[in-house]
Write a protein that binds this DNA or RNA. Structure first.
Length: 524
RNA sequence: GGCGACUUGGCCGAGUGGUUAGGCACCGGAUUGCAAAUCCGUCUACAGCGGUUCGACUCCGCUAGUCGCCUCCA
């Protein structure tokens, strides 16, 4: 065993219970997360899965495992085809653009742990083989160029989402008439004239929605792997169908642990439920009220804009403050507050850097990379005893189904403890590096870094005052403050002061322009 | 109609059968030339009604409300 101390427990959607995490082939852990269909720009809801799984992978490695994480890109499907028709450009171009957008957003949020990002269109042969296999084994049938999965052949069908085929509302659509039973779903869809297509034993066509995940996960992670994740909305039909396809094709379970993250809701202020909701709903703008659940079809705003305004770190922190399985109510005030909360850490890191000369944002503190390596003896140092306790609490929280919210609260206690220590020891910038107080401080921060690295927080220097827009606004206000001071000085004929302000600003690269209607400024 | 999740203090959000979550905001104090920051402290809780129990916010039931999925939304 890589780490006999690991007591990680994970909530498994399939069994609806928290289970001890036991990988199939330790120390290896295979993780597959359903990625986006790249037909439009991503919104914040698309980041919940990536951020939590990025954290899960970091934590698994910290716990001594060797995780491999796959996120697929679905780059061919009906919505892409529609978009292509709308915009008059090829499907591939839309996919390329939107994939780039998605990747840029991931990068901003510090999601950098993905090992493979397979694209459906790169796995066509693989997908077709999978469908052929299912047909041969009698789980699927071809009708006029389409191939459907026969849900009646799978006695376990519905186990993940706990549904009964007979209870389901029927489905319309042109393909319905071809199906043996209404619950059957498409594995392969025949191409209409002019549509993007690939050759197959059933004629020209494209894959159905779910099959690409079954084919690609098998290719990279094997017929059975450890963790499969995605948003709660994918549980049915997407994951149910994947599970059915792969299970029937291989005669064994596809996945050991199914993990589903909660969905975001666009947020009016107030509670999600309860009495106050009626009022808060009334306060919401019609746009907000109509939005409800964030989804592409309802037009949630571009994520890149949000990142520019709030920074990726802030958004990541905001997501990690809540447990991954709960609904996150998302609004601007929430992000704003997350930013305020984060400030406290930035100030601590500044204080510490003053004293030690070490930056928290790089690897200056040389944190341990695994839990085993990070074990240490605090001796009878009061600070380090506390640190050891915080570290233990943090790990317990993470072991309990990735309770990042609780883990973050430990960080806040830790923060206070560090500030208290700095207040009491009165350490300042001249402190000797080998002074016992400084040595303890460095150790404490090293431990903190060890854990914040798991959450992927504080890995880069914070942009001052938030994103670009916020910084611009702040700069503008600051310059106007100086303009006002200069005006007051000139009004009492203190031209020396007035000119000093203008000249000094000019040296910085800010030109003041005196006009009839007042003074403005521009970057020179 | 079927399946499922949820309801914690001004707001956001953890958690537990009897013991301080945490954050933001507020208030009091320490510190500070003033302010900020920091520290200390206080104050607002577990939707309603029943039941189990020595004891429930935590378990069970009912009621009310909110939310999600039910063929292509992460």
């Amino acid at each position: 065993m890589p780490n006999p101390d690991s007591k990680l427990r994970i909530y498994n959607t399939l069994t609806k219970a928290k289970e001890d995490f036991q990988p199939l082939n330790p120390p290896q852990v295979g993780i597959y997360l359903c990625g986006p269909t790249v037909y439009a720009e991503s919104h914040i809801g698309h980041m919940v899965g990536p951020v939590i799984f990025d954290t899960i992978k970091r934590y698994l490695r910290y716990s001594g495992y060797e995780p491999t994480w796959v996120v697929n890109i679905t780059d061919v499907d009906d919505k892409l085809i529609n978009k292509s028709r709308e915009r008059g450009i090829p499907v591939s171009q839309i996919a390329t653009e939107m994939t780039a957008d998605y990747l840029a957003n991931l990068r901003e949020l510090g999601v950098n742990q993905i090992d493979y990002m397979p694209r459906a269109t790169d796995h066509m042969g693989n997908i077709i083989r999978f469908v052929e296999d299912l047909v041969e084994k009698g789980f699927a049938y071809a009708v006029e160029g389409d191939v459907f999965f026969d849900v009646t052949k799978d006695p376990g069908y519905g186990q993940l989402s706990n549904r009964n085929i007979d209870d389901q509302q029927g489905e319309g659509g042109g393909a319905a008439a071809k199906k043996r039973s209404s619950g059957d779903f498409a594995l392969w869809k025949s191409a209409k004239p002019g549509e993007i297509s690939w050759d197959s034993p059933w004629g020209k066509g494209r894959p159905g929605w779910h099959i690409e995940c079954s084919a690609m996960s098998r290719e990279i992670l094997g017929e059975t792997f450890d963790i499969h994740g995605g948003g709660l909305d994918l549980m049915f039909p997407h994951h149910e169908n994947e599970l059915a396809q792969s299970g029937c094709c291989h005669g064994k379970p596809m996945v050991k642990y199914w993990m589903h993250n909660g969905l975001m809701r666009a947020g009016a202020k107030g509670k999600v439920g309860g009495k106050s909701d009626r009022e808060s709903a009334a306060e919401a703008t019609p746009e907000e009220a109509a939005e409800g659940k964030i989804s592409r079809s309802k037009g949630a705003g571009g994520l890149s804009t949000l990142i520019r305004r709030h920074t990726g770190t802030r958004i990541r922190f905001f997501l990690l403050r809540t447990h991954y399985r709960s609904t996150i109510l998302f609004n601007d005030e929430g992000l704003e507050e997350a930013g305020v909360a984060l400030e406290g850490f930035y100030r601590l890191f500044d204080r510490v850097e003053e004293i030690t000369g070490k930056s928290f944002y790089d690897d200056s503190f040389e944190p341990a990379r695994t839990r085993a390596e990070g074990e240490f003896d605090p001796g009878d140092n009061e600070l380090l005893k506390q640190v050891d306790e915080f570290r233990g609490k943090f790990i317990v929280a993470m072991d309990d189904d990735l309770n990042t919210g609780l883990a973050v609260s430990v960080l806040f206690d830790w923060l206070r403890s560090m500030n208290r220590y700095l207040d009491e020891t009165k350490l300042a910038s001249g402190a000797k590096a080998d002074a016992p107080e400084v040595v303890a401080l460095v150790t404490a921060m090293q431990k903190m870094k060890e854990l914040t690295d798991i959450l992927g927080l504080f890995t880069k220097v914070p942009a001052s005052g938030g994103g670009d827009e916020a910084a611009q606004e702040m700069l503008d206000k600051a310059v106007h403050l100086l303009i006002d001071l200069r005006k007051e000085a000139r009004e009492r004929k203190d031209y020396a002061t007035g000119d000093t302000i203008r000249n000094r600003l000019s040296e910085i690269g800010i030109a003041l322009l005196d006009k009839k209607e007042g003074t403005t400024w521009e970057a020179s």
